[in-house]
Every structure is written in C-alpha cells, then in structure tokens.
C-alpha cells in the first residue's frame, strides 16, 4: 500500500513539474500546440505506471520498480520531451504497453500479436522509427560510428544532439551524478542474468544508428525505461549495503545528484527558453 501511495505521489509530482508553465517554457508559436503538449505530459503518467509494472514483474523487487519510476520522472530527456509536442514520448507509452505484453506472455502467438500491434500503431503514429536503412546500403564504418556515438559518454552525459533545434542539447540524457549507479546497475544485471534490459537498449541503439534520419532521430528515446531500470538497480544495490562507508558515499552521491538536478532545472527554466526562441523558425513540426 505504501509503495502504491509513493508511486502515485511520484507520478503526480512528475506530472505537475511537467505542466507547470508548459505554455511558456519552452515558448509556443501557436496556442493550439498547448493541447498536444498536455497530451505529451499525460502520456508520461501512463508511461510512469507501466514502467513500474514492467520493472516489478521483471526484477521482482517493488523498490527497484519504484526507483525506476522516480528516475524516469527526473531524467533530463524525459522531462524535456514531456513538455513539448513529442511523438517519441507518446510512442514510448505505446512501447511500454507492448513491452508488458511481450515480455511476460509465454505464448508465442500473443508475443507476435503484440509485435504486430506495435508496428501497426507506429506505422500510423510514429513512422520515423521504421525508417531503417538496410544494412547493405550503409558502410559498416558509418554504422559503427553511429552506434558508438549513441553509446558514447558524450551523448549520455553531455550532449544530447538528437533533436538539434528543439532539444536541450547542452545536456546529456542522464545526469552525470547517476553514472556510478548506472555502471553498478549494468554489472548487477549481468550478474543476475537480466540480459533483456541490456539487449533492448542495444537493439534500440542499433535501430537509431540505422535510422535514415540519424542524427536527427529520437528513436533512442524508447530506451529510457531500460536506462531508468539500470540506474534504479544500481541505486538499490547501493542502499541495500549496510556498510557505513558505502552509506556515506551514497549520501555524497545523492547530494551531488540534487546539485546536478538543480543545475539542470535552472538551465531549463531560465536559459533554455532564451536559446530555443532563436531556433523556433528551424523547427518545422508542432513544438
């Protein structure tokens, strides 16, 4: 019961910070966009709950599931995309529906049906994700370059340039302070043989690398749930340790994380609107 209350609080908090001044930050060209931004923020609610369910069933730990939802709520990229008209954000909600069906249904036929459902919905809703260049039409060096630039520390921590004109490109997709937890999370997932998380992330990275719109493609946004689970797993491993030294290190990292968040929100609320207002003419879609 307590976990469910906490989850609801997290999601509601996440929704609130997403809709606060959503009509001003970032600036809107047209009032009609307001509706689509609200839809994007609402899809976050669905994604948050679905992510919790998925993580709980996969990891069998409610705390990891709760932490995943929390991390997902505050990830820079998630926050930024939930405040604009974002097809990837809505596509992520659909993807999480599919994921819950696909992962936990043992019947192959149901898995296939869920996959067909996903492809069909994406065909109409988010066709960009299906713009994959055949492997034989692109040089291996280019594929490797794209793939490893997606998985590079630069992209993860410093420069998310997949949405050049409209995104927060001076920030990575996760906060630097979460990196130790992500590394520990990856090692723990390997140890526990929860390879699905890593495989899904790599698969989505590969699809992004092969996308014809690369680097102007946000397909990699679909990996945010897996990244959230990985980080949450790392945090969970940390807080489970009873050693005083570990707890002190954790508190220091936590303090750094809050400082990191404060820096990000300061940048987003004050400097990003100014930077983006000069780019609005370059964005040729609802923003």
């Amino acid at each position: 019961m307590k976990i469910k209350i906490l989850l609801t609080v997290i999601i509601l908090f996440g929704f609130f910070i997403r809709i606060w001044r959503i009509d001003h930050i970032p600036p809107m060209v047209d009032r009609s966009i307001y509706f689509f931004r609200i839809v994007s923020s609402l899809s976050y609610i669905g994604s948050g709950f679905l992510l919790y369910i998925f993580t709980k069933r996969l990891m069998h730990f409610k705390r990891i599931a709760l932490l995943s939802a929390f991390i997902y709520t505050l990830l820079p990229w998630s926050f930024e995309q939930s405040r604009i008209t974002s097809l990837p954000n809505i596509a992520l909600f659909i993807f999480l529906i599919f994921l819950n069906f696909f992962t936990f249904n043992k019947q192959v036929i149901l898995k296939i049906i869920s996959l067909v459902f996903l492809i069909t919905v994406y065909f109409y809703l988010y066709p960009q994700v299906l713009n994959i260049v055949p492997v034989f039409k692109i040089q291996i060096s280019q594929i490797l370059h794209n793939f490893f630039s997606i998985l590079s520390p630069e992209f993860f921590l410093f420069k998310n340039n997949l949405y050049w004109w409209g995104g927060v490109r001076d920030w990575g997709i996760i906060n630097i302070s979460l990196l130790p937890f992500m590394v520990i999370g990856i090692l723990f997932l390997i140890e526990r043989k929860k390879y699905q998380i890593i495989i899904w992330t790599l698969l989505i990275a590969l699809c992004t690398a092969l996308n014809s719109d690369f680097p102007e493609t946000r397909v990699f946004y679909l990996s945010l749930p897996f990244i959230s689970v990985t980080i949450a797993t790392g945090i969970f491993k940390f807080i489970k340790k009873e050693s005083l030294k570990i707890r002190i290190i954790f508190l220091i990292l936590l303090a750094f994380y809050f400082y990191d968040l404060a820096q990000y929100f300061h940048y987003y609320l004050i400097h990003y609107p100014q930077q983006i207002s000069g780019n609005i003419s370059e964005i040729h879609e609802a923003f």
Binding site: L144, F148, S149, L151, P153, E154, L157, F158, I176
Partner: peptide
C-alpha cells in the same frame, strides 16, 4: 559545474570506442 563537466568529459573520452579502435 561547466568545468567539472569538462574535466569529466575529458576523462571519460579516453574510453571512447572510436578513439580507441577506429
């Protein structure tokens, strides 16, 4: 924060795949 980010970026760039292997 910017300098810390730069220092960290400089550090971690030494493990970049393209830099090491390509």
């Amino acid at each position: 924060y910017d300098t810390l980010k730069k220092a960290f970026y400089n550090y971690i760039s030494n493990f970049d795949f393209e830099y090491l292997f390509v």
